[in-house]
Every structure is written in C-alpha cells, then in structure tokens.
C-alpha cells in the first residue's frame, strides 16, 4: 500500500526531545486529501493513487477539472456513453482540487472518494519529501556548484568568480557534455530522502519532519514513506 500525502510547508522551528536535545523540524500542514482516481494495471498499465489537496474555487476550475471529481455532470458525451451502455468510472464527489499528484504503488486499501489524513504516518519512521526548490535564477558556478572561483590577486584579472578551465587541448578539442557551469539554479523538482518523522498531530493536521524541506514557506509538497532501506 502506497503511503503518502500532499501538503504545504509552513516553516521551520525547533523542539526538544526527552533528553533535552534540540531537534530542528519543518512543519508541514498535511492533508486532508481526497482520493480522486485509482490507476490500475489493466486500465493504465501501472498502479497509483491520485490525491487532491485544497479546494479550488469553482469559478477558477475548468469544466474538465470539475468533471474529474463530480459524480454527476451532464454532457452530450456522457449521455451518449450511457446510451451505449458504458459504465462511467467512479468519481470522488468532492470540490475540484488545487494540487493533484499521484503516488505510485499498490492501490490496496484505497477507494475513490476516500479521505486521507496525516494519521497514515502514525507507524512510519521516515519520509521522502518532494517539492519545487526555491528559484535562484541564472547563477554563477560559485553559487550553483560551490566552486572556489579564482584568486583575489597574483595576476588574476576580472575573473575572480569565474569557472577555471573547461577542458583540455588538441585532444579531445571539445568540452565534455554535462560539465558544471553557470545556469538556472533552483526552481526545479527536488526530493529530500529519509527525513525522520519528529511528530504527527492528527488533530491539527500537522506533520513534523526532522530537517529541511525544499521550497518556500507555503509551497506545496508531496510526502511519501521513504523508499530508502535500513
């Protein structure tokens, strides 16, 4: 059974464990999510649970977004499909959702329309958190790859923060692909694996994980049980 939930990063703080040690934690407001769709082997070729988090106002949702969750929405196609005797797939019957993601894994124990709360992590030790990292724009190699740059003196002119050499000479007389250089940094999907769970607060729908999580405060995150062994 795939264990996971969608949520929002609230921010970081610190708490104390029994021995008085400080634990840095990220607070995630997780769920409640609705199961919108189940992907099955026969139909889709893989198994996954599609979750939706936060309601989207109806005036902002497109008709297809509404149709994705609404159990009864009249349309010409729906009428003709019904006339042909095709059974419509089950719908969640909730409001359209703002943030929709799939969790790959067994769909056992899930059904469409079911509500998923942060309680699913009660017996989980560690999680993987996926989010979009903070965008830093076009950044130099020093910031992006922690290069050292060049010397401040000894004849270095106007290239103190530049990359050094990028290749050899007549052989291979080209620069290898994938060489680390300046470029877009951040604003990319990023997963931090094996974050220990520091607390689950079912009442307030909060999840505390030890350590940092990618993205700004208020950013959407996907939290899954870790796939790291041991």
């Amino acid at each position: 059974m795939a264990i996971g939930i969608l949520g929002r990063k609230v921010g970081m703080t610190q708490i104390y464990d029994e021995s008085g040690k400080v634990i840095p934690v990220t607070v995630i407001q997780a769920g409640p999510c609705h199961v919108l769709q189940l992907k099955t082997l026969e139909r889709d070729g893989y198994e996954a649970v599609q979750l939706g988090y936060l309601d989207k106002p109806r005036r902002l949702a497109s008709r297809s977004e509404r149709g994705h969750v609404a159990s009864k929405m009249d349309s010409k196609r729906a009428r003709s499909r019904a006339a042909a005797g095709v059974e419509a797939p089950p719908k969640a019957g909730c409001e359209p959702k703002r943030f929709i993601r799939e969790l790959r894994g067994s769909i056992e124990g899930y059904e469409v329309g079911q509500e998923v709360t942060v309680g699913v992590f009660e017996n989980v030790k560690a999680v993987d958190v996926t989010a979009t990292s903070k965008g830093r724009g076009y950044s130099g190699a020093m910031r992006r790859h922690n290069f050292k740059g060049q010397r401040a003196s000894h004849g270095v002119k106007k290239v103190h923060r530049h990359v050094g050499g990028t290749g050899s000479s007549a052989f291979p007389s080209r620069t290898f692909k994938g060489l680390r250089m300046a470029g877009q940094y951040g604003n990319a999907r990023c997963t931090i694996r094996n974050l220990q769970i520091a607390g689950v607060d079912v009442e307030n729908q909060l999840l505390l994980v030890r350590g940092g999580v990618p993205g700004p405060n208020g950013g959407f995150v996907v939290v899954r049980e870790t796939n790291k062994l041991g």
Binding site: Y16, V25, Q29, N204
Partner: peptide
C-alpha cells in the same frame, strides 16, 4: 503560518 508554528511550539 506563524499561528501554526506557535501551536507546534506551545507544548515545548
């Protein structure tokens, strides 16, 4: 978000 963090910190 500040209220949520305050709530988390409360018991510590």
């Amino acid at each position: 978000s500040q209220q949520i963090i305050a709530k988390v910190e409360e018991k510590y």
